[in-house]
Simulated assay, not measured.
Amino acid sequence: MEEPYMNDKGIVNFRDIGGTQVAGGYLKPGYFYRSGEISGLNPEQVSFLEHDCQLYTIFDFRSQNEVAKDPDTTIPGTHYVKDDILSDQTKNGASLAGMFANGGHIRDAMLKTYEQIVLSGSAQAGYREFFDAVINERKPTLFHCFAGKDRTGFAAAVILKMAGASDDVIMTDYLLTNQLRKEANAKLLAQFKLEVNEEQLRNLSVALLVDRDYLLHARETIINQFGSFEGYLKSGLKLDSGYVEAFRQAFVTPK
């Protein structure tokens, strides 16, 4: 099994989730790259994504406001898809603005955000668009949001679940974000230190982290609303009944 690739180019929270062990084999490397936002990339980083990763499609899960503030750096030869996962939510706890807006109730707000990620119409339509493209194109894809932790983290969890990864393996990838965002989070906190009060800074420090309870809450929401993960794929995302089998044939290498 190949190890998941994490670059040394300084792209925040970037990794290839390929190489992850799943039932019967491992997820093929070189197809599913996840990251935080990719604005302001330098030429070396652009070349890495273009030539080393050979990206075909970039899915941007951020809101219109987030994109307008920090648009993605153009990667030559790629198809860019703006796919606002939480467009129908007035309070987007996964955005930087939302992290501040939720005040001292950040943990409750994040749990609510994960419910929205599972249940909102825009999230279901957005993830369906993403997964339709994945199976139709079968090309290297980068998917990201602002921090690459919630909207992106959930998408990665669904990919790994469809591939046959265990819940423990999925959680390990999910929590890896806290390690890979340490430097970026420290810079953000330093940036806002003189602009906000101590309570707001503490809230932001919590909001910039993922917590296993968030992903567990998403799983619980799926079971409560759809009965099973398969029910979520069928009734929530409206994916074809044979989608998982086709996905595994395309992207899972047997042992």
Rank of each mutant, 00 (worst) to 15 (best):
residue 1 M to P: 12
residue 6 M to R: 15
residue 9 K to D: 08
residue 10 G to M: 01
residue 11 I to H: 01
residue 16 D to C: 04
residue 16 D to T: 07
residue 17 I to S: 01
residue 22 V to M: 07
residue 25 G to C: 04
residue 28 K to P: 00
residue 30 G to L: 06
residue 33 Y to D: 00
residue 33 Y to M: 09
residue 35 S to I: 00
residue 41 L to Q: 05
residue 42 N to C: 10
residue 43 P to C: 11
residue 45 Q to F: 02
residue 46 V to Y: 02
residue 47 S to C: 10
residue 47 S to H: 10
residue 48 F to N: 09
residue 48 F to Q: 06
residue 51 H to F: 12
residue 54 Q to N: 13
residue 56 Y to A: 09
residue 58 I to W: 03
residue 61 F to N: 04
residue 65 N to H: 11
residue 67 V to R: 15
residue 69 K to F: 05
residue 69 K to S: 07
residue 69 K to E: 13
residue 84 D to H: 12
residue 88 D to A: 09
residue 92 N to V: 11
residue 93 G to F: 11
residue 96 L to P: 02
residue 98 G to F: 12
residue 102 N to I: 10
residue 103 G to D: 03
residue 107 R to M: 11
residue 108 D to Y: 10
residue 115 E to M: 08
residue 116 Q to K: 11
residue 116 Q to V: 05
residue 122 S to W: 01
residue 125 A to Q: 15
residue 125 A to G: 03
residue 127 Y to F: 15
residue 127 Y to D: 11
residue 130 F to K: 06
residue 131 F to T: 13
residue 131 F to Y: 13
residue 136 N to K: 15
residue 139 K to M: 07
residue 144 H to T: 02
residue 146 F to V: 15
residue 149 K to L: 03
residue 152 T to M: 04
residue 159 I to G: 01
residue 160 L to V: 07
residue 163 A to W: 03
residue 164 G to A: 09
residue 166 S to E: 14
residue 167 D to G: 00
residue 171 M to H: 05
residue 173 D to A: 01
residue 174 Y to N: 00
residue 181 R to F: 05
residue 181 R to L: 02
residue 181 R to Y: 05
residue 182 K to T: 09
residue 185 N to A: 07
residue 185 N to H: 13
residue 186 A to D: 13
residue 190 A to W: 03
residue 190 A to F: 10
residue 190 A to I: 03
residue 191 Q to L: 14
residue 191 Q to C: 09
residue 193 K to I: 05
residue 194 L to T: 14
residue 201 L to W: 09
residue 203 N to G: 11
residue 204 L to N: 05
residue 204 L to Q: 03
residue 204 L to E: 06
residue 206 V to K: 08
residue 206 V to W: 07
residue 210 V to T: 08
residue 212 R to G: 14
residue 213 D to W: 03
residue 213 D to I: 15
residue 220 E to K: 15
residue 223 I to D: 12
residue 224 N to S: 15
residue 225 Q to P: 07
residue 236 G to E: 08
residue 239 L to K: 04
residue 241 S to K: 14
residue 248 R to N: 06
residue 250 A to W: 04
residue 253 T to M: 13
residue 254 P to R: 14
